[in-house]
C-alpha cells in the first residue's frame, strides 16, 4: 500500500473532530497517514496533532486558506502533499476540493466511502439504494462519509511541522449571508427532526422547531412538503434531490417514506418514525416506530425529552 495523506477537515477555521475518523480510515488502508492541516494560522494544527494513529502532522500555512476557493486550495495543498492516497471528509466543500485536487494530479477520486476492507472501498450509489465496491490500481483521492468510521482517539505526539504554501485564488467572496435562524442546517446536524406532508400545514412545522430547539436538532422536510408549501425551503429537503444525511438520530414525523426520501436518510444511526398510517414504508426502516398522529405523539415526545434535557 502506498503512503496515505489525510487533509484535515476545517470548519469555521478549526480542525473538525471528523478528522480523527479520516485517520481511522487511513489506518484501515494499512498505514499511518501524514495529516495536513490547511490553515492561515499554524496554531490551528495543534488540535490535529492530539489524534492517535497519525504519522507526522503538517500545518500547511497560507492566506489562501482564509476563505474557501477550490482552485486556490487545490494548488496550495498539491504543493505540500506527497504522492499517495489522499483522504478527505465527504462534506460538500471537501468533496469539491478532492475532485479539484485529483484532477490536478491526473488521478481519480472515490467519493463518499463508508467501508474499507482488504484495500477495497465501498460507497453508496443511487443515493444509498445500492452499494458499490471498487479497487484502486494507482494513487487516488478518497472522501470518507462523516459519522461512519470510529474516532482514532487521542494520544498523538502533539508535534507539528509548519510548511508555508501558496496558491492562486480565482473567486472572491463579496458577502456572507448568515442564515436567518440560528438553527443548524440538516447537513451539519447530529440530530434531525423532519416533517412531511402529514404535518397538514407549513405552520405546524413550528412544533418540529420547538422539539428541535429542545434537543439541539436541525429541522428537515420531505420533498412532498417542500414541493407543496412555499414556506418550506429546498434547503430543508432531505432525500435524493435534496440533502443526503447520516445523523445519529433522525425523527421522521408525518413522512410516509417515499423511496427518494429513504435514499437520503436511511443511513442514519437511529430512526424514529411517527405516522398515523401503520403501513407507511418509513416504519420498515425505523428503530422506533410510533403509529399515531403527530398531534397525539409529538407533545408527549416533546415533554419527555424536555424533562431529560432539563
Amino acid at each position: 500500500m502506498s503512503e496515505t495523506i489525510v487533509i484535515a477537515e476545517i470548519v469555521k477555521g478549526a480542525v473538525h473532530p471528523t478528522t480523527s475518523e479520516l485517520i481511522t480510515a487511513a489506518n484501515a488502508l494499512g498505514s499511518q497517514p501524514t495529516v495536513i492541516v490547511p490553515c492561515a494560522d499554524a496554531s490551528v494544527a495543534d488540535a490535529a496533532a492530539q489524534y492517535a494513529g497519525a504519522g507526522k502532522v503538517i500545518a500547511a500555512k497560507s492566506d489562501v486558506f482564509s476563505n474557501y476557493d477550490a482552485a486556490g486550495w487545490a494548488s496550495a495543498l498539491d504543493a505540500v502533499a506527497p504522492a499517495g492516497v489522499i483522504l478527505t471528509s465527504a462534506s460538500p466543500q471537501s468533496k469539491d476540493l478532492a475532485a479539484r485536487l485529483a484532477a490536478r494530479r491526473g488521478i481519480s477520486v472515490v467519493q463518499d466511502v463508508v467501508k474499507i476492507e482488504g484495500g477495497h472501498l465501498t460507497s453508496p450509489i443511487y443515493s444509498g439504494k445500492a452499494m458499490q465496491t471498487v479497487s484502486l490500481s494507482s494513487d487516488a483521492i478518497v472522501t470518507v462519509r462523516p459519522n461512519v468510521f470510529d474516532s482514532s482517539g487521542t494520544g498523538g505526539s502533539g508535534e507539528v511541522s509548519v510548511v508555508d504554501t501558496s496558491g492562486n485564488v480565482a473567486t472572491a467572496v463579496q458577502e456572507f449571508m448568515a442564515r436567518a435562524s440560528s438553527r443548524l442546517d440538516v447537513a451539519e446536524a447530529n440530530i434531525i427532526v423532519s416533517g412531511g406532508r402529514g404535518m397538514g400545514t407549513p405552520a405546524n412545522f413550528s412544533h418540529l422547531e420547538t422539539l428541535a430547539d429542545t434537543i439541539g436538532a436541525a429541522v428537515g422536510a420531505s420533498r412532498a412538503a417542500v414541493d407543496t408549501w412555499d414556506e418550506i425551503p429546498h434547503s430543508m429537503q432531505v432525500g435524493q434531490t435534496g440533502k443526503t444525511v447520516n445523523p445519529n438520530l433522525y425523527i421522521a414525523v408525518g413522512i410516509s417514506g417515499a423511496i427518494q426520501h429513504l435514499a437520503g436518510m436511511r443511513s442514519s444511526k437511529y430512526i424514529v418514525a411517527i405516522n398515523k398510517d401503520a403501513d407507511a414504508p418509513i416504519f420498515q426502516h425505523a428503530d422506533y416506530g410510533i403509529v399515531a398522529s403527530w398531534e397525539e405523539a409529538l407533545p408527549v415526545l416533546q415533554s419527555s425529552l424536555a424533562s431529560m434535557m432539563a
Binding site: P92, Y126, A170
Partner: peptide, 20 residues
Amino acid sequence: ADTGAGSTGPGLAERLGWSS
C-alpha cells in the same frame, strides 16, 4: 443522481485551468 459524487464540475475546471 446515480453516483452522487459531484466530481465532474470541479475536476473539469482544474483540467481546463478555469475557476469553479
